[in-house]
Amino acid sequence: MMQKNGSFQTNVFINCPFDTIYKPFLQALLFTVIYSGLEPRIASERSDSGEIRVDKIKTLIKESRYSIHDISRMEPLGKRDMPRFNMPFELGLDLGCRAFGIEHLCQKKCLILEKRKYRYRKVLSDISGNDIRAHNNNVEKLVRHVRNWIYENINSQVQAATQIWQRYNEFYAYFERTLKEFGFTKKDIEEMPVNEFIDYLKSWRLSSQRF
């Protein structure tokens, strides 16, 4: 497994759902972050049943200067389900760390993504004053928002959003074809752990150094 822990200055804590429906969004998000030379930190990067999840999340938040929160799925998955509060809870932890943290923690910056503009105000009006960007359930638009936020806050040399999106499509084709040649089924690819996907993505990135 590749080295996971980058430095505080390049770590980006990713707070989003891990379900199958959201997976294409997560994969494109991870691609954009890695393509831009940053290190994604995600709760599922290691899985140890003996570790308390919220402790792991607190550590990730403390170790990451940047964070991306996608609260577009804070809703019930089915009609009889309850809404999901993990994403807004972790967003709160991150904003709290920035507000009350000492020294370098005050430098923290975050991007909050939503499905539709102003939808969150019905249930999370405390963040009404924040700049929240809506991706309208469109993966290309999510890539565009993340890239623009990286440009504004981290790296002004980042490539154009269209180029990143095109490279992502090319990467994905090569990734899927390669895995199938090595005997992976569609299900194996769909249910692949996030950290394994990140490993292959980093290997692909090393291939060219054209970033």
Binding site: N169, T178, W204, L206
Partner: peptide, 19 residues
């Protein structure tokens, strides 16, 4: 082997993408 293959990626101009 997969890592090695991913690292050896080269863009192929003979491929067209519809995206």
């Amino acid at each position: 082997n997969i890592d090695a293959r991913m690292k050896s990626y080269k863009s192929r101009p003979d491929r067209l993408h519809v995206l």
